[in-house]
C-alpha cells in the first residue's frame, strides 16, 4: 500500500458516496446514467468474487463489500425508489455494445484461462469504459449539475492516482500488471476531456456533442 493507492481508493469511495448522497438528498436521479451504474455494479460483482476464495486484508475485504453494497444501493435508488426522476429518455447508450466486445476480449487477452480470472479481466476492461453511458447522457442533455461533475472528477482522479500507484509499484516492488495498466490508461484518457472542462469551466460542465 502506498499513498497513491490509498488516495485513489479514497477518491473512488468519495465518488461513490457523493453520488449516493446526491440522489438521496435531492430525492432525484436526474442527470445520472442508470446504465453506467448498472455497469459499475457488474464490474464490482465480477471483480470481487475473490472475496469468496482469498483473503488479502481486512481493509481490502471491507472496501470491496462497501463498493459492492453502494453500487447496488445506487442502482436500486435509480431504478426502484426514485424511478420517476430517472432520465430514461436521454440514457440511451446501448450497453450491449460495450459488454459484448469487452466479454470477447476478456476471453482472448487474460493472465490465465480460468473462470475467476476471466471474470476479473472482464471487470477491468468493463470498468475502463463503464462511464461512457454517463458521458453520453451529459452530451445529450448538454449539461451536468455541479455535484455530478464532482462525482465524475473524483472517479477520474481515482484511476489517475492508480496510474501513479502502478509506476510506484513497478519501481519499488518490480510489480506490474499489464492488463490493469493498459485498461487504466484507457480509462483515465476517457476522463481527460472532462477534466479539462471541469478545470476551465468549473461549475456547470457541458460536453460538446
Amino acid at each position: 500500500m502506498n499513498i497513491f493507492r490509498l488516495a485513489g481508493d479514497l477518491s473512488h469511495l468519495a465518488a461513490i458516496i457523493i453520488l449516493l448522497l446526491k440522489i438521496w438528498k435531492t430525492r432525484s436521479c436526474a442527470g445520472i446514467s442508470g446504465k453506467s451504474q448498472i455497469l459499475f455494479a457488474l464490474v464490482f460483482t465480477t471483480r470481487y468474487l475473490d472475496l469468496l476464495t482469498s483473503f488479502i486484508s481486512l481493509y481490502n475485504t471491507c472496501m470491496k463489500i462497501i463498493y459492492i453494497g453502494c453500487a447496488y444501493a445506487t442502482v436500486h435508488l435509480i431504478y426502484m425508489k426514485f424511478k420517476a426522476t430517472y432520465d430514461g429518455n436521454h440514457d440511451t447508450f446501448r450497453i450491449e455494445f460495450l459488454i459484448v466486445p469487452v466479454g470477447g476480449l476478456s476471453f482472448l487477452v487474460n493472465h490465465d484461462f480460468s473462470p475467476l480470472e476471466i471474470l476479473w479481466t472482464f471487470s477491468i476492461y468493463l470498468e475502463s469504459v463503464a462511464i461512457l453511458p454517463q458521458l453520453f447522457l451529459i452530451s445529450k442533455t448538454g449539461e451536468a449539475e455541479t455535484i455530478t461533475t464532482h462525482y465524475l472528477f473524483c472517479l477520474g482522479v481515482y484511476r489517475a492516482l492508480y496510474l501513479f500507484n502502478w509506476i510506484w509499484r513497478f519501481y519499488f516492488e518490480g510489480f506490474f500488471d499489464m492488463i490493469a495498466i493498459v485498461a487504466g490508461v484507457v480509462q483515465t484518457i476517457l476522463y481527460c476531456d472532462f477534466f479539462y472542462l471541469y478545470v476551465t469551466k468549473g461549475e456547470k460542465v457541458a460536453i460538446p456533442s
Partner: peptide, 10 residues
C-alpha cells in the same frame, strides 16, 4: 511479477 491471479488491488 506478471499476471498473478491473487489480485490485491481494488
Amino acid at each position: 511479477i506478471i499476471g498473478r491471479t491473487r489480485h490485491d488491488e481494488l
